[in-house]
């Protein structure tokens, strides 16, 4: 069975489904026995959620005004 450090190293790739089948099986075998690494998995999922939530942004009014002006001023002849 892989060690905790090997399991932790692969956790995010495991969560992102970026590991090959053999590594996936090794991580899951480790998680079945290691409570601490199960905690690491749950925490990594929360961290991913924190990052994903930070993608949402409201346009500041000044930026929205500038981008709206850009859209208004697009030259129709430049479109293909």
């Amino acid at each position: 069975m892989i060690s905790c450090s090997d399991a932790v190293r692969q956790l995010w790739d495991y969560l992102e489904d970026e590991v090959v089948e053999r590594d996936r099986a090794a991580v899951e075998e480790h998680l079945a026995f290691c409570r601490r690494c199960c905690g690491e998995v749950e925490f990594a999922q929360e961290l991913r959620g924190l990052l994903a939530a930070a993608a949402d942004i409201e346009l500041p009014p000044t930026v929205e005004a500038r981008l709206t002006a850009t859209l208004d001023e697009l030259d129709p002849d430049s479109a293909t």
Binding site: R66, L74, T80
Partner: peptide
């Protein structure tokens, strides 16, 4: 983003 909009419009097709 402004440059992106201009380029996107040029290639909208």
């Amino acid at each position: 983003v402004q440059d992106c909009l201009v380029k996107a419009f040029r290639n909208f097709d």
